[in-house]
Simulated assay, not measured.
Amino acid sequence: MDTDVVELILADHRRFEDLFRELRSSEGDRRTALAELAGLLVAHAEAEETQVYPALRRLGAADGEEVEHGSEEHDEGHRALLALLEVGEPGGSGWDEALEELSGAITHHLDEEERTLLNDARERLTRDRRGALGAEFARMRARLLDSGCGGVEQVRELVRRAGS
Rank of each mutant, 00 (worst) to 15 (best):
R15I: 01
E17T: 12
D18Y: 05
D18L: 11
D18N: 11
F20C: 11
L23G: 13
R24D: 01
R24I: 04
S25H: 14
S26N: 06
S26L: 12
S26W: 12
E27W: 07
E27S: 10
G28Y: 09
D29T: 09
R30N: 03
R30H: 04
A33S: 05
L34N: 10
E36Q: 13
L37N: 13
L37I: 04
G39E: 07
G39W: 02
L40C: 11
A43K: 00
H44R: 09
H44S: 12
A45M: 08
A45E: 08
A45D: 10
E46Q: 13
E48D: 15
E49G: 15
T50P: 08
Y53F: 07
A55G: 07
R57A: 08
G60W: 02
E65V: 12
E66Y: 11
H69W: 08
E72G: 11
H74D: 00
H74R: 05
H74A: 03
E76W: 03
G77A: 08
H78C: 01
R79W: 06
A80G: 14
A80N: 14
L81F: 07
L82E: 13
A83Y: 03
A83K: 03
L84M: 06
L84S: 02
L84I: 05
L85D: 02
E86W: 05
E86L: 05
E86Y: 06
E86C: 01
G88S: 03
P90I: 01
G91M: 02
G92C: 03
G92P: 06
S93M: 15
G94L: 01
G94Y: 11
E97D: 14
E97R: 13
A98S: 07
A98Q: 07
E100H: 13
S103M: 02
G104N: 05
A105I: 11
A105G: 14
I106Q: 10
H109F: 00
D111F: 02
E112N: 04
E112R: 02
E112S: 08
R115G: 04
T116V: 05
L117E: 03
L117W: 06
L117Q: 04
L117P: 05
L118N: 10
N119V: 14
D120M: 10
D120V: 12
R122G: 09
E123G: 11
L125K: 05
T126W: 04
R127D: 07
D128P: 06
R129S: 13
R130F: 06
G131N: 08
G131W: 03
A132D: 14
A132Q: 11
G134W: 10
G134P: 11
G134F: 10
R141N: 15
A142N: 08
R143H: 15
L144E: 12
L144F: 09
L144K: 13
G148S: 01
C149A: 03
G151T: 01
V152N: 06
V152W: 02
V152G: 02
E153V: 06
V155E: 05
R156G: 07
E157C: 07
E157P: 06
